[in-house]
Each structure stands twice: as C-alpha cells, then as structure tokens.
Design a protein around this nucleic acid. Structure first.
Lengths: 150, 150
DNA sequence: CAATTGGGGTTCCTTTACGGAACTCATCGC
DNA sequence: GCGATGAGTTCCGTAAAGGAACCCCAATTG
C-alpha cells in the first residue's frame, strides 16, 4: 500500500497517527485496556489476521506503548500498557464519547462508564488544564510553538 | 487491502474508526479545522495523492463530518466541518496533547493553544461530564450498555 | 476569439499491505 | 512418546495507496 510516513511531519496529530494510526491498533489497545492480553485472545476477539497482529504488537512495543511480560517458563507473553500507553486510553475514551453520541443509534451505547469519584454513569468532557473551563474546537487560538516547522 | 469493516462492530471505537480511521482522514480534518478548505490547498499541504484525497473527502461528506459549499458560479467547493465534525476536533485536540507530551522531543510542540476563557497557553484535560473531577483510564469501571452485543 | 490558466477531479499503472489459511517450534501434562 | 497449547511465521491472492498524466469547464488574457 506504500503508505506515507507521518512520523516525520511537524504535527503532533501526524506523529500520534504514526504510533497508533494503522488499522487495528486502537482496537488492540482497547482490548489490552480491558484486560485482554495474550496473542491468541486478541486474535480471536478481533478476528484480525495473525500476521497483522504480530506486526501491530511489535510496533506498539517498539513505540513504548505496550510491554511484553513473560508469564510462564515457556516463551509465553502478556501484553500490558505502559504509562505512555495508559495515557493513550484518553484518546480511546474520547472516541467512545463521540461514537456513542453520533453513531450508536437506537440501541444506545454498547458500554457505559461508571466514574469512581462520583459513582455515576458518565462520560468524558474536555477542560482546560489551566483554568478548568470547557475547551473545545472554538474555544482556542492556535499559535506557532517552539517545534514549528522552519 | 480488503479491509475489515469496523462499522459493524458493537464498539464505539471501531465505529469511530470506520468514519475517520483511514489513513489521512484525521489530517484532512485538521487542515479543514485550521481553515484550509479547498481541494488543491489540501492536496498541496498534505502531499496526499489526488485520488485518495477525493475518496477521503467523499467519505467524510457521506458520514456527515464535512459539508461541501459552492463558493463560485463555477463548480468550485469549499469543505467545512459540520457540527458532527466540529466535535471530532475534540479527538484531534487529545491527540495533540498526547503527541506533544510523548513525541515532540527537544524541539517542543509545533503548535500551542491559547484558551479564550483564561487567555493562557494550555492544553486539554479529561474530566467527568457529571462531577467535573478528572476521568482517565484508571478512574472508571466499564459496564455493559444497552447497545451491547447479544 | 483562440489560447491559457486554475480548480476539481478521473484514469491508469505500480507497489505495498491486508486477509486467511496452513505451517512451524518449543514446552507441558499425561 | 504424544497430543495440546501459545505464539508466531510463511505464502498467496486481492485490494488499496502513490504518482503522474489526463480531462472538463469557466474565466481571463492578448
């Protein structure tokens, strides 16, 4: 398919896509997040080809998003989220929020979140890390940062 | 590529990927978000093949994420975000946040956000829509929802 | 009024990557 | 010793990305 390399672009969106933008990668993270951690489990749950699953897991491990943990004396491994990977779950949670709102249809959302702090069924909302007020597309100005392209 | 159809899965992540999971789609949304709206502009800025750009734009319009607006008497169009598309920008903002933190390196982030409400350079944080407390991977329990697979 | 330009796509061809099934390899438990 | 199990690898057919060339139409330009 001869895919363009997004990792070289001066854009954090493109760079993030270089890590998890390939087909299946977000779904693999989702499964690992909810506790599915072994090769055959993932393969069966996703219905992904074993070849592609191998490629994706290697890439995610290379990128420091997943870690391989031996769990037996044999060459058997579990995949776990690293700290870097755990923070990617934020992205998944936002995807879930958008998909629940715009794509779930009559049946409603497939999964609900209960928030530990308040005990309620809820979902995520984006806030400014500085002042705590809502922060969405129209609430910001974009400025060139230090890593901007020359 | 004979890609698996994510849209049929009972998972809001998979369904969202069905809308914007193909290569380039998030970058197209980014460009439209920052005001780049015409075919040739997008093509030149992204370096994407015209064929693929055509396919992606059609798909995003079909999915109700972008709208085509004529801007001349000739057949000339601008692409704009719909309400559904504007809310996808949340996803982009979270990707930026993660990429800035984990992938920007020495040079620092390529782009900065100034939040209108407080005037500060900031970034997004995920909060519970119900109680306003932080809401990340470890702060929730997952429960089956009404649209769960049988 | 013919020639050029520019936006917005098609068409065609080559290269890559996905899907699926079969196969390998090492180690247990029996 | 013998099948079962986990974790991959190999191989082939097909579909999708990349790239360049081409097309259509309206408005300038000379």
């Amino acid at each position: 398919m001869q895919r363009t390399n997004f990792g070289e672009m001066a854009c954090s969106i493109a760079r993030t896509l270089d890590v998890i933008g390939e087909p299946w990668s977000p779904l693999i993270l989702r499964d690992v997040w909810v506790g599915m951690s072994r090769f055959d489990q993932l393969q069966a749950d996703l219905g992904i080809s074993r070849k592609v699953l191998t490629e994706r897991l290697n890439h995610l491990v290379d990128q420091g998003v997943l870690e391989r943990h031996p769990y037996d004396n044999r060459p058997r491994y579990e995949y776990r989220l690293t700290a870097k990977g755990v923070e990617l779950v934020d992205l998944l949670m936002v995807m879930v929020g958008w998909g629940d709102k715009w794509l779930a249809g009559e049946a409603g959302p497939p999964v609900l979140y209960r928030h530990h702090a308040c005990g309620e069924i809820s979902h995520v909302d984006l806030r400014c890390a500085h002042c705590g007020e809502p922060m969405h597309a129209g609430d910001i100005d974009l400025l060139p940062g230090p890593g901007a392209a020359a």
